[in-house]
Computed example of a mutant assay.
Amino acid sequence: MTATVRVVVADDQELVRGGFAMILAAQPDIEVVAEAGDGVEAVAAVREHDPDVLLLDIRMPRMDGIEAARIVCAETGCKVLMLTTFDHDDYVYDALRAGASGFLLKDVRRDDLVNAVRVVAAGEALLAPAVTRRLISEFAARPTPRPTRELAVLTARERETLQLIARGLSNAEIAETLVVTEHTVKTHVSNLLTKLGLRDRVQAVILAYESGVTIPGSD
C-alpha cells in the first residue's frame, strides 16, 4: 500500500491556496494537513504537523517563502516545493540555495502539480524546464568558477554521474549513457549526495556548476 504524502500549502491568496489544497486533497495518496497564509504560519505548520512536503509561495507577508524554506530545510526533513507567479532568476537561485527541492510556476497544470508533489516527496528534485534554463543562464553569466576541494572525495564514476545530473539527465538516461544498470546509478547518486553532504539532486546541480565540474553550454 502506498504511503500517504502529507502536505502543507502556504500562499497568502486564500483562493489560490484553497484551490491548490482542493486539488491535492482530492488525490487518494495525498493529505493536506494544514494551510498557511504567510511564511511565519508556514514554518509553524511544518513544526506542528511534520509534513512530507511544503508547497510554498515565494512572495508572502511577514516572512517570504525564501526565508521560510531556509528555516524548514535547516530544521526538518520536509521537502519544499516552491510555487509562484514570479520566475525571475534571483528567486529561482535563492529558493534552490535555501534548500528547495522543486520550483514550479503557478500556471502549472493540475496533473503536473500533483505529480510534482509526489516526485518531491519521493526524494527527487523537480524543476520546470523554463526554470532549469534560467538557472543555467544564471551560472553562465558568472565568472569562471573555481574547483571545490570537497569533490576530491568522489570516485571517477561518481564525478561522471554528478556531471550528468547537472545536465538534467534522469537515472535511466544516466544508466544508458554510462552503460550500467539503473540500480548502479541510484547507488552512485546516493553515495555522492552522502559524501558531499547534499540534500538532493537540486543541490548537486548547484554544486556542479559552482565548482566548475559542469560548465553551462558544454553539453
Rank of each mutant, 00 (worst) to 15 (best):
G65A: 01
R134F: 09
A156W: 09
R149M: 13
G99C: 06
V108T: 11
S101C: 11
R70W: 04
R159P: 03
L55S: 07
V53C: 04
K106A: 08
R149Q: 15
E48K: 05
G99D: 04
A121V: 12
D94W: 04
A156Q: 13
A100W: 01
I165N: 10
V120M: 06
A69D: 04
A98N: 06
E75K: 08
V120E: 03
V72H: 00
R118P: 06
A166G: 13
T132P: 01
V72K: 00
T76I: 11
V108D: 06
L151C: 14
T85L: 08
R146N: 12
P145F: 06
A130G: 04
L54Y: 05
R59T: 14
D50Q: 13
E150H: 13
A125E: 12
C78T: 14
P129C: 03
A122S: 15
D107A: 12
A69N: 05
A121I: 13
C78S: 03
T155C: 10
R167Y: 08
A156T: 13
C73T: 15
A122E: 13
A121S: 10
L126I: 11
C78E: 00
D87N: 14
A140S: 14
V117Q: 00
L96A: 07
L154P: 02
A98C: 09
R62H: 12
R97T: 10
R109M: 05
D112A: 14
G65N: 05
L96T: 01
I165V: 13
E67A: 12
F103P: 02
A130H: 08
R146Y: 05
Q163C: 10
T84R: 00
S170P: 03
R47E: 14
T85G: 15
R159C: 04
R70K: 11
L162H: 06
A122V: 09
H49K: 00
A172I: 13
T84W: 01
L104H: 12
V117T: 07
E158T: 01
E75D: 10
A95H: 00
L96C: 03
D50V: 15
L55G: 02
H88N: 15
L104R: 05
F139Y: 12
